[in-house]
């Protein structure tokens, strides 16, 4: 895949990068992930779950990727860590702290500088005591005790098995595992479902602390309110791609500041904004349209929408839309 030049159509510099002087930790350019699937017996077809997805996570920020459940957001997390199953084909380019980030680097960095915070205790070995799992293959007992203390986990949690943890404890244990390392990039895959408001807030507070220490936090969630409350920037995920990357403020100010028609429709469909859904549904991964993936539901579509559409910068955010008047 040819390296794409970062273009600035409107001439406005990336607001975030400019104002806060932050450096990107992770840059994802045109990431495409497809799975070889067998259907109707032996016919093989490629199921494209991520489609030319571009995304940047800066040091010190919480970047939330929001999108519907089951739309392939977890695949993004797994692709970033390099733990996709064997039948996955990956295209596109990723950079980590400005340098190359391929299979070799993923293998070297995952679990050390790039950590995953999983959804639930299902991601822990049911037959291994929690302390040992948090320590992992590199951590020491001392480090684990320190982290447990910081997260208010009593000493005896060390001896418990995953199924003996309460919801809140489990959450803190999973974050503790990430805290054992000097992470530069934290990927949190749906870290809050099943938690009550208070615990979700507590979780987000730990993410904020990580960000303040200089980590980039990639928060993948379907909980929009949570993203609005806690993220610095939000990427809107639709049909396997990111249609828009914008500051959280742009969402909070009612939608006029947003760039992509889907982002606006998404915002309008929220209960607090009148619950006005748009007709149609997301295209199936095995049957993606050419050009803009949102075109068939877009009220502003034109002929040109059928062409390949590039991500471009508009008013300090990034959008995958070709309209002139954004």
């Amino acid at each position: 895949m040819e390296k794409k030049e970062k273009e600035s159509v409107t001439g406005v510099e990336n607001k975030w990068e400019h104002e806060k002087g932050k450096a990107p930790v992770l840059e994802v350019e045109d990431l495409t992930v497809s799975f070889g699937m067998y259907y109707k017996g032996l016919r093989r077809r490629e199921l494209e779950v991520l489609h030319r997805l571009s995304l940047t996570v800066y040091a010190g920020e919480i970047m939330a990727v929001i999108g519907a459940s089951g739309s392939g957001k977890s695949v993004l997390a797994h692709a970033v860590l390099g733990i996709l199953p064997g039948n996955a084909a990956v295209q596109g380019e990723m950079r980590y702290q400005g340098g190359a980030y391929g299979e070799k680097e993923q293998k070297r960095l995952r679990g050390k500088e790039i950590v995953l915070i999983p959804q639930s205790v299902d991601y822990l070995d049911p037959l291994m005591r929690v302390g040992r799992q948090v320590r992992g293959v590199r951590g020491s007992k001392k480090m684990q005790e320190n982290v447990f203390e910081r997260y208010g986990l009593s000493e005896n949690v060390d001896r418990l098995y995953p199924w003996e943890l309460s919801g809140g404890m489990a959450r803190r244990v999973l974050i503790s595992a990430a805290e054992m390392e000097k992470a530069r990039l934290v990927v949190a895959d749906e870290p809050t479902p099943g938690l009550n408001e208070e615990m979700a807030e507590e979780t987000m507070k730990s993410f904020r602390q990580m960000a303040e220490r200089g980590c980039g936090v990639l928060l993948i969630t379907h909980d929009i309110d949570l993203a609005f409350r806690s993220a610095d920037r939000i990427a809107v995920f639709y049909a396997g791609t990111v249609v828009e990357e914008a500051l959280t403020e742009d969402f909070q100010s009612g939608g006029a500041a947003l760039r992509h028609p889907y982002s606006r429709a998404f915002l309008d469909a929220l209960p607090q904004n009148g619950f006005r859904p748009i007709p149609g549904s997301q295209p199936y991964a095995g049957n993606l349209p050419k050009g803009c993936l949102f075109a068939d539901r877009c009220p502003m579509r034109s002929e040109a929408c059928g062409r390949e559409i590039k991500m471009r910068e508009v008013r300090g955010g990034r959008v995958r839309c070709i309209r002139d008047e954004i």
Partner: peptide, 24 residues
């Protein structure tokens, strides 16, 4: 899922087999 997480934490195949495979 827990093997996926073990991989995400940087465990090698040998470590995964020894720590989780045999145990389970």
């Amino acid at each position: 899922d827990f093997i996926l997480f073990a991989r995400a934490r940087g465990e090698s195949m040998a470590q995964i087999v020894l720590r989780h495979g045999i145990r389970n």
